[in-house]
Design a protein around this nucleic acid. Structure first.
Lengths: 227, 227
DNA sequence: GTCTATAGAGCGATAGAC
DNA sequence: GTCTATCGCTCTATAGAC
């Protein structure tokens, strides 16, 4: 009857910890409060995982596999064919959609995005290692695909713009309240399909822009424009 | 000789705390370590500020005034004239440049950007209040200016795209290491003029894009594209 | 205004009974 | 595998001498 839950307690801890870390930060959530919230004993985290940090690493490992697999599966379906969206838009959707929501309808992917953002700020060194271990390979696959679709850009430009996309992506899924405050509640951050469509349109246009020209700056300090 | 430093200790605490909070997080830095790092007594923070949180609020108050003033001064200089960059690019530069570096050459503006990002994740509620108090008015001025320069967009689209710009902006100044890892050290995050030029080109193109069309999605779950 | 000393609370982690 | 009890540590904040 319960052969499908050999370590039900460990799974419950992973679920609850992911949610609490994402919403209250890593340092802001104690091992005590995690076990209390999921009905386990205070010592359960250290029994199942060994330490608070290993628990965090297990959360990363569990999520990243599914997201990477979904991204690469969609990337494999991208094709420059008549009647479909332009290839660049397809690639961007293949990259972004799995971190908005999994096909199963699980909303945890979005929460995990906020968790990554939280950890990047609170545990910079650990975050660098985890992101590199779990996401570098897939990110580079997409960087290459985008570079191939934007032959007018030097690789350096592609990297900067992909970096900006990452920032917009993290911020949108991590700070859903900010756009409500900015727009006077006209934008609904819970409408993930709208956010995704807006982000793809914005980023695709950004990637298509001509390489920037630094001499076109209006207020550079050396040109003594103002003071 | 020292009439210019009536509260030298408080100023030193503000400087050191801003740097330590930005690099190690708010919860990750103790009042003890701040006072130790700036040679003050352990009790100095509570004598001068009353609490750790008020110290953080004073850091916000001190920086935000200068940044807002610089932004609005540059915005007032923006004009759609031949021989200058397009108006949209001018507005974006007026918004972004003061948070990359102040005219005085002070690098603290960039550090303060990372501090805001850190606090947004660790102290979500406090951050919301501080950001609204110090930045909402100026941000709305720029939202209006951008909206006027992009008459093809609904206000909702302008808000989403401004939100994406905020995300790219925060991420670039908060996670300088990520673009080095992504680009194989081809992009130099310390070259702030390059980052600024790239960001303006990317965002300006994004704002100029046509409104997005949600029916153009390639992998929406309801269309049963894959599984 | 600067210092020492400490209160009072919460933390991660562990030992050892069951 | 689950529990209680507790160790040893760090934290913010404060009291009170100088």
């Amino acid at each position: 009857m319960n052969e499908s839950q050999p370590t039900a307690t460990a799974d419950r801890i992973l679920d609850v910890a992911e949610e609490m870390f994402a919403e209250q930060g890593y340092r802001g959530v104690s091992v005590r409060s995690i076990t209390l919230a999921c009905g386990a004993n205070i010592a359960a985290v250290h029994y199942h995982f060994g330490s608070k940090q290993v628990l965090l690493e297990e959360i990363f490992a569990r999520r990243s596999g599914a997201i990477n697999a979904a991204r690469l599966a969609l990337l494999a379906q991208c094709a420059d064919q008549p009647g479909r969206a332009p290839l660049l838009e397809q690639i961007l959707e293949a990259y972004l959609r799995p971190s908005f929501a999994q096909p199963s309808g699980d909303k945890g992917a979005k929460r995990f995005m906020r968790l990554r953002s939280v950890v990047a700020h609170e545990q910079a060194e650990l975050s660098k290692n985890l992101i590199a271990r779990h996401f570098n390979a897939t990110s580079h696959r997409f960087l290459e695909a985008i570079a191939a679709a934007t032959p007018h850009l030097a690789l350096e430009d592609v990297c900067w713009r992909f970096h900006f996309l990452l920032g917009a992506h993290y911020y949108t899924l991590s700070n859903p309240g900010r756009i409500q405050a900015l727009s006077g509640d006209q934008c609904d951050p819970a409408d993930l399909e709208a956010a995704l469509a807006e982000m793809i349109a914005f980023a695709a246009a950004g990637f298509r822009a001509l390489p920037c020209d630094r001499s076109q700056m209006s207020f550079a300090p050396s040109s003594a424009q103002s003071a």
